[in-house]
């Protein structure tokens, strides 16, 4: 009877210990970092002394551990991609990893996930071309070319001097922007004239999550950034945490590639600076 009671007590005790350990583990995995307002103020002050101004409200104060985002290339067959864009009867020239396809006045160049398409004399007239309709036209063209637009978002629409419009697409997955994956398309009333892009599609997050660097330490690193103009004052206009497809010259024919969490700092002179969120390393691009 005595032992039975001891066992009951021990079971309750170990249940509590297990619960505590499990919660600790979950907290460690989904760690949330909160930066105090004092730290933010100190960082702003240090930046100011180094000719960098930033609004306190732009600095995020809560951050979570982040997984890696796996990206996939849905255009692995360059010839099939060329046929969808140019149609049959094109000629192909290869120079290392670069394939150049030509059909009449249309030229398509493909190098892995990067492509560029020029149609010197477009012939598919668009009668209702304006800032709103151009987005729909662009999406339809991308779907016709079998470019996955599930996570595509319009980043900017700009009117050109010749009456045409340029539409820039990027991707967003689980509320996070993927910064260096893009497609830019230029339409004239005669149709699609130019298209350029580096296109990978988000597949899924890895199960593992990685701790990320405090944005304040990234901002301190930014002071020493060699690419930042030192002779004039700069103002930080945006600080975002997102993903950047990890492009590498050694890997051209990508099937899947990782997208790494990155901090993006945008300044008032239009420049952007990327820092690896896991290591704090500056990404030279």
């Amino acid at each position: 009877m005595y032992w039975s009671r001891v066992k009951t007590i021990l079971i309750i005790l170990f249940l509590c210990i297990n619960l505590f350990l499990l919660v600790s583990m979950m907290v460690s995995i989904n760690q949330t970092i909160t930066i105090s307002s004092d730290t933010v103020e100190d960082t702003v002050e240090v930046l100011k002394k180094n000719n960098i101004s930033v609004e306190k409200s732009l600095i995020p104060t809560r951050m979570h551990n982040m997984p890696i985002l796996q990206m996939q290339n849905t255009q692995q067959d360059a010839d099939a991609f060329a046929e969808r864009i140019l149609g049959e009867g094109y000629t192909e020239e290869k120079d290392g990893d670069v394939s150049k396809y030509t059909l009449g006045s249309s030229i398509l160049t493909v190098e892995g996930c990067a492509f560029s398409y020029i149609k010197a004399s477009p012939s598919t007239a668009i009668t209702d071309l304006n800032e709103t309709t151009v987005q729909e036209h662009a999406k339809k063209v991308l779907e016709r070319f079998h470019l996955n637009t599930k996570y595509a978002v319009v980043q900017a629409v700009k009117k050109q001097k010749d009456g045409g419009y340029t539409v820039a697409f990027s991707q967003r997955y689980a509320k996070k922007d993927i910064f260096n994956v893009y497609i830019t398309m230029t339409f004239t009333p005669q149709g699609l004239k130019f298209m350029k892009g580096y296109w990978l599609t988000p597949k899924k997050f890895t199960s593992e999550k990685y701790p990320i660097r405090h944005v304040t330490s990234i901002l301190i690193n930014f002071i020493r950034n060699e690419d930042r103009p030192k002779d004039k004052k700069v103002t930080i206009t945006d600080i975002s945490l997102g993903y950047r497809a990890d492009t590498n010259d050694d890997v051209v024919n990508i099937k899947t590639a990782p997208a790494i969490p990155v901090w993006r700092i945008t300044t008032d002179d239009g420049k952007v600076y990327y820092y690896e969120a896991m290591t704090g390393d500056y990404i030279i691009h």
């Binding site: 890696i68 692995q76 590498n248 050694d250 024919n253 990508i254 099937k255 899947t256 990782p258 790494i260």
Partner: peptide, 17 residues
Amino acid sequence: TNNPRKYIETDNTLVYI
């Protein structure tokens, strides 16, 4: 072995950096 920088090329070659 947990290297997040893993690529798979179109011929299924694994690439680590």
